[in-house]
Nucleic acid binder design. Structure first.
Length: 545
DNA sequence: TCTACTGCCACGTTTGAACGGA
DNA sequence: ATCCGTTCAAACGTGGCAGTAG
C-alpha cells in the first residue's frame, strides 16, 4: 500500500483549513513510468525546489486567438468541455517527487456581462459564486518524471451551470468571467499535505480567461471553435468538399453555409447599423491588452466596462473568411436565425467576406490543429462541494482519514480571480475544500454511501478536506506563485490524510467532509486580496513568461 | 418582446471490443 | 498463446436551432 499525504496550510491571516491528502492505494492505473514504481523520494535525494517548476501553456497561440476575440466557454447542464483545452508542459520538477496537479476556475471579477453591440459589457453585479470545485488531474499524484514526460492535459474538465451537478463538474454562472488556474502541490509521503514541508504553487495564464455562456454570443469565437475543435468538424466547411459539391452543382463559388448566411445578414445589417454605431468595433484587435486584472488597479464598474469593451470587443475580422459550409439546409435561417446582437451590432464586415480567399489568419488557425495527446484516459476527479447546498458540517477528521470513500474537493469560498493590484496589496487566497462531488446531489446524504454512478468512479478514493492556495499578481500575461516548504505551517484541526485512493475502486461510498471553512474566510469581494503565499513568509513568486 | 436557457439533432471524433493473421 | 493491425459500432463531443421560461 502506498500512502501519501499532502497538505496545504494557509496564510496566517486567512482562514486556514488544513488539507490533508492521502492516497491509500494507487488506483488501477497504468504504470507511471520507469521512475514511478517506487517513486517515493529518498530522504537523501536533493530536494528540487518547487520554485523551480516551470509551466508553459500548451497551444498558447490558439489561446491567444481566442483571448483576442474574447473567449467564451459553453456551459451546459450535463457539462461541457473547455476548448481550447487546458494543457500545460511542466518542467523543473523533481523526477522522483510526487505531485498533485489540480485546476480550478475562479471568478475573474464580480461582474455579470452581456454581449451587446458585438462586445462584452458589464451588465451588473455578479451572482453569488458557485461552490468552488477542483479538478484534480487523473494522474495525481504522480512523480515529477511522469508530469514532465508529456503534456499535462485537463481536457476532460467539464463546466456546468447546474448548481446541483452530481458529476463533480466545475460549476459556473453563465455570463460571468472566469479564470482557470493550475495548482501544483507536492504530495509525498515524506512531505505530507499539511506538514511543515508542504509546498505548492499556482499558475495563472491570463489568456485562458473566458466568459461562460450557454450559447455562443460572439460569432468569431464560434468560428474559432469550429475551425480548431475536431469535434466540431461537422460544422466545418471543408473547402475541398464544398468546392467539390459546388462544382458538382455547377457553381463557381462555394456553397454558402448558414454561418455565412448569418454573416451576410450581419454584415448587411451592419452596413446600416455601422453608420449609426461607427467606432464601436475594432477591425483587427490582434493586439489587445490583457484583462482588467492585468492592469494592476482595481477597476470601477465603468472601468471594467471599458475594459471589457476594449478587450472583448467583437471583431468580425474583415479579413476572416467564414467558410463554414453547413450540412443542413437552413433557408429558414435567412428569415430567422440571427441572434439579435449580431443583427444589431455594427460590423466592419462586409459582403466581401464570403468570397474572399481564406486569409492567412485562418490559415494560421488551421495550421494549428487540435491534437489530443495520449494523456490519461481516465477521468479526473472533479472535486466538488455539497456543503454549500447541504450546509452540512464538517466530517469527522478521523473518518476522513479512514474512509474509503470517493471524495471530491471544493473551494469552500469561491475567490474571484484577483484584479491584480500593485504588488504588496494582499490577495486573498481561496480555499479549496475537498469533498464529495457525488454527494452534491440531494439524494446522497452525508456520510452515507452513494450509489451515484459516475464516470469518475474509477478514480479511486479521495478523501479530502480543504486547501488554500495563494495566487500572486502576474508580472506578465501569466503568473504563478508558489509556496515552498512551509515552516511552521499548521497541522490544523488535525485533519488527517484525506486524499485517499484505493486501487480498482469502483464507485465507492462517498463521504462529505465538508469542513466548510467559514471561519476566518475573507469575503471573496474583499478588496484586500492577499497575494501570496499563505504558507510562508518566505514564499517565492515566479512568473511564467 | 427580449434574453437566457434547454433539449434535441446531425455530424465527426474517439474509444475499445471483436476479429483475423502472423 | 501472444502480439499486432484492422474493422466496426457505440459512446462521446460539437454547434445549430427551435422551443420555452422568466
Amino acid at each position: 500500500m502506498l500512502q501519501e499525504k499532502a497538505s496545504a496550510v494557509t496564510d496566517e491571516c486567512m482562514s486556514r483549513v488544513q488539507t490533508s491528502v492521502e492516497t491509500d492505494h494507487l488506483p488501477d492505473r497504468p504504470p507511471l513510468g520507469p521512475s514511478s514504481a517506487s517513486a517515493l523520494p529518498s530522504s537523501n535525494e536533493p530536494e528540487q525546489k518547487i520554485e523551480s517548476i516551470k509551466v508553459v501553456l500548451h497551444e498558447r497561440e490558439l489561446w491567444k486567438k481566442f483571448h483576442e476575440a474574447g473567449t467564451e466557454m459553453i456551459i451546459t447542464k450535463a457539462g461541457r468541455r473547455m476548448f481550447p483545452s487546458y494543457k500545460v508542459k511542466v518542467t523543473g520538477m523533481n523526477p522522483k517527487t510526487k505531485y498533485i496537479l489540480l485546476s480550478d476556475i475562479v471568478p475573474a471579477d464580480d461582474h455579470r456581462y452581456k454581449f451587446c453591440d458585438n462586445k462584452w459589457m458589464v451588465a451588473g453585479k455578479a451572482e453569488p459564486a458557485m461552490p468552488g470545485r477542483l479538478y484534480v488531474h487523473p494522474d495525481s499524484p504522480a512523480t515529477g518524471a511522469h508530469w514532465m514526460r508529456q503534456l499535462v492535459s485537463f481536457q476532460k474538465l467539464k463546466l456546468t451551470n447546474n448548481h446541483l451537478d452530481p458529476f463533480g463538474h466545475i460549476i459556473l454562472n453563465s455570463m460571468h468571467k472566469y479564470q482557470p488556474r493550475l495548482h501544483i502541490v507536492k504530495a509525498d509521503e515524506n512531505n505530507a499535505f499539511g506538514s511543515k514541508n508542504t509546498a505548492y504553487c499556482t499558475h495563472v495564464f491570463h489568456e485562458t480567461a473566458f466568459i461562460s455562456v450557454t450559447s455562443y454570443q460572439n460569432h468569431k469565437i464560434t468560428q474559432l471553435k469550429i475551425e480548431n475543435n475536431p469535434f466540431a468538424k461537422g460544422f466545418r466547411g471543408s473547402e475541398e468538399g464544398d468546392l467539390r459539391v459546388s462544382r458538382l452543382q455547377g457553381k463557381e463559388f462555394p456553397v454558402i453555409s448558414k454561418n455565412m448566411v448569418r454573416q451576410r445578414l450581419i454584415s448587411s445589417h451592419s452596413h446600416l447599423a455601422g453608420k449609426l454605431g461607427a467606432g464601436v468595433l475594432t477591425g483587427h484587435p490582434q493586439v489587445l491588452s490583457s484583462y482588467q486584472y492585468d492592469t494592476g488597479v482595481p477597476m470601477s464598474n465603468a472601468d471594467a466596462q471599458d475594459s471589457i469593451a476594449n478587450h472583448f470587443t467583437q471583431s468580425r475580422d474583415p479579413g476572416l473568411l467564414y467558410h463554414c459550409f453547413k450540412h443542413r439546409d437552413n433557408a429558414r435561417h435567412l428569415e430567422l436565425g440571427c441572434k439579435r446582437p449580431y443583427l444589431d451590432s455594427p460590423s466592419v464586415g462586409s459582403e466581401e467576406h464570403y468570397f474572399r480567399p481564406t486569409p492567412s489568419y485562418e490559415s494560421s488557425l488551421l495550421s494549428r490543429p487540435y491534437c489530443s495527446e495520449a494523456i490519461a484516459s481516465r477521468e479526473a476527479c472533479m472535486y466538488g462541494s455539497m456543503d454549500a447546498e447541504s450546509g452540512s458540517g464538517a466530517g469527522d477528521s478521523d473518518d476522513l482519514a479512514n474512509s474509503p470513500s470517493v471524495n471530491c474537493n471544493m473551494w469552500a469560498t469561491m475567490q474571484p480571480y484577483p484584479r491584480y493590484s500593485v504588488e504588496g496589496v494582499p490577495y486573498q487566497p481561496f480555499t479549496a475544500h475537498f469533498t464529495n462531488a457525488a454527494a452534491v446531489t440531494p439524494m446522497v446524504p452525508h456520510h452515507t454511501p452513494s450509489m451515484v454512478s459516475r464516470p469518475q468512479a474509477d478514480l479511486g478514493v479521495y478523501n479530502s478536506s480543504s486547501v488554500q492556495l495563494p495566487i500572486i499578481p502576474p508580472s506578465s500575461s501569466s503568473s504563478s506563485s508558489c509556496s515552498p516548504a512551509v515552516p511552521g505551517s499548521r497541522e490544523r484541526s488535525g485533519h488527517p490524510s484525506l486524499y485517499h485512493k484505493k486501487p480498482g475502486s469502483p464507485l465507492r461510498p462517498h463521504r462529505d467532509f465538508s469542513a466548510y471553512p467559514t471561519q476566518g474566510t475573507i469575503s471573496i469581494r474583499d478588496p484586500s486580496y492577499q497575494y501570496q503565499v499563505g504558507l510562508s513568509s518566505a514564499g517565492t513568486h515566479w512568473t511564467e513568461s
